[in-house]
Design a protein around this nucleic acid. Structure first.
Lengths: 223, 223
DNA sequence: TAGTCTTATTATCAATCGATAATAGTGAGG
DNA sequence: CCTCACTATTATCGATTGATAATAAGACTA
């Protein structure tokens, strides 16, 4: 879509004030997350992303290659945070691990995921925006970031089902039940405020939500 | 964004073939649903909506007032279908109705909602696209269509909780758990195909999904 | 059949989009 | 103090957007 050649000579302009910033890359990254999460890739404009942190639109193409590259960098950054939040939740090797150990660990993983979804709603907002159409962005995000997460859950869930701790739901379906149930109040927080008058960022909401999910997904946990 | 005045006189052109259609309004409506669901309001262009049903872009502004009015008409139409699918699921008056009657009715409501979400993914796609930002569209949709649905569920859920049939989850939180868990595989069907290789429109998937949700949300139903 | 109303088709508008060229401050190294 | 690499700022490009004017083809009516 871009212009390729320049025919006219820009006018010289007299005075120019200039702001120097060292955190501009990170500022643009986080602004992009908020805008992409709220409006989707197409709905978010590079001008609004820049304006939100008092930067200029061409700085995006300078510090990143393109709008698409900024999106990729933002998603990389956010999945990195998710990885930190869930680090060590699922053992790499399940051999010899019993349901009595992995059950509480899985429950804690659910709680952490709910808290992360509340603290960083942009992640699930972007995932759900992108997941509605088969784009290159979706293919990249799914293969790079979602699949490892998805694959790690499957054997642990099967172990818990065999032990009678987990609810009777197929593992692949469970993934979407879990992610959907855990993220929607934060993905659609503006709607929650209109519909309930409550604030889904309230710790009371978040902990009640997390406990509810653990109760219905792992009914065999309670001693 | 519109042009206001016309200064030049369009050229006369020789031959013009013309397609007459009686179903053009409905065709545009359903095309709009698919496009708005897949790409969001901003991402969907009126040209792509028209092209999908072999119509011309200005016909949208002729048969509807604007892109926004087309969106409103589409959402009205889709919530009408949802209302039909769920008709009579929740009694208007709960006085004197016991949990042993409303329990199975609620379970059937869950199953119907899952089937509707699978058959008309555009509804939840649009809801989740719009719910991420506090726009006028969200305010209208929430007040007009979502709130009645939300309000109808609350007393029934409370009755089921008191009877020990329903899972221990606050009613307002339950709404988002239910909607999120019931709709995500269909909202993000393109991602499901990439991630699992399975087809979420498969009746086997849908019924397994619905049964799983009933089992975890109404654990006290099984005799 | 002539006239009129509806609406399909074409052409074009102003606004906005992402991208890039041109210009000009700024600070580090000499 | 000067130089120069870096990057902030401005201006502008071509493409696309939603909307509307102009035109014309059918359908219906008298």
């Amino acid at each position: 879509m871009p212009g390729k050649t320049r025919t006219q000579t820009p006018k010289t302009n007299p005075v120019r004030v200039r702001r120097a910033r060292t955190d501009i890359r990170e500022a643009l990254l986080e602004s992009a997350l908020v805008e992409f999460g709220a409006k989707g890739f197409d709905g978010a404009s590079t001008r609004s992303i820049a304006k939100r942190v008092e930067a200029h639109q061409p700085q995006i193409n300078y510090h990143f290659e393109s709008k698409a590259a900024l999106w990729t960098a933002s998603v990389d950054y956010l999945f990195g945070l998710l990885g930190q939040a869930l680090r060590g939740m699922v053992p790499a090797d399940l051999a010899g691990v019993g349901a009595q150990e992995i059950g509480p660990a899985f429950a804690e993983g659910i709680r952490r995921f709910v808290r992360f979804a509340a603290e960083h709603p942009e992640l699930n907002q972007i995932m759900v925006h992108e997941g509605t159409a088969a784009t290159d962005r979706l293919a990249w995000m799914t293969e790079t970031h979602v699949k490892p997460f998805f694959d790690a859950i499957q054997p642990a869930w099967q172990l818990l089902r065999d032990a009678g701790v987990a609810a009777p739901i197929d593992g692949q379906i469970l993934y979407y039940v879990l992610v959907g149930a855990a993220s929607l109040p934060y993905v659609n927080a503006p709607e929650v405020r209109l519909l309930t008058g409550r604030e889904p960022d309230d710790p009371e909401w978040i902990e009640a939500h997390a406990s509810g999910l653990v109760a219905i997904l792992l009914p065999g946990l309670g001693v």
